[in-house]
Amino acid sequence: MPLPKFKYLAPKTWEEACAMLAQYKGKVRVMAGGTDLLIKMSLGAAAPEYVIGLKNIPGLDYIKYDQTKGLTLGPLALLADVADHPMIKEKYDAVAHAASVTATVQVRNMGTVAGNICNAAPSADNIPALMALDAEVTLARLGGKRTVKLDDFFQGPGKTVMEPEELLEKITVPAPLPGSGTAYLKISPRSKVDIAAVGVGAHLVMAGDVCQMARIVLGAVAPVPMRARKAESLLTGQQLTTDLINQTAAQAADEARPITDVRTTAEYRKTMVYVLTRRAINACAQKALPPCAK
């Protein structure tokens, strides 16, 4: 369907973008890759009077790593570039993998990680991986900024704590701790290109065979991507055994609050949370081992 008419704003600097957002508050949408927004607009689910295109601001697609600050993704960091980045693959493989299984080749060449977060679909592939790694976002507005943990960012399908005059300035992921392993696993009706029916992100920090820290994030089984906190607490401080992993996976399935929809049933989703959580914990434990022990 053809797009409805709108006015296109092309700020040349970040400050100009913040000023435009404040000026046209409530009548404007910000566009990164456009792969979600333009579909919503053509379907009539969004009808902004103005669209701010960020692409005219140079350098927003950066991907940076610093040993103390960790990974920083600019607001236009492309899914394809995050998926293929050697450093992200090495140090944050769940993040790279989640980007690599998001949508299609073409959408990954256009869409951004920041856009996937701001679109706030419960099934968004990049969120469980980033949340499992305790990522936070910096939100900027004219004359100020704040940081919000992804844990506290989502409020419902398509709803976040972002105010209408705020822009997502960057995504920050802490540097990986020694002994950490991460994983993102998804199941969808079609192998590659479809939206996740269930996604599980996990992050374990291991000392030998004892799990020191665990974060498990479930996607597409609740109104927002959710931590399985009781499941996490079962692992913390414990020796990883097959029994404990099974028990933790069952706990995660218990915490999930899925619905039945066009993609699959609530019951299947719960069962798959069990299966994927078990696999994700095993994958994390495997990756957390020092190279000599593999």
């Binding site: 456009g34 579909i39 959408v107």
Partner: peptide, 13 residues
């Protein structure tokens, strides 16, 4: 050099 969907690309962009 990248394959993209022309239906989701604004001509202005």
């Amino acid at each position: 050099g990248r394959n993209v969907s022309s239906c989701l690309t604004l001509a202005v962009e």
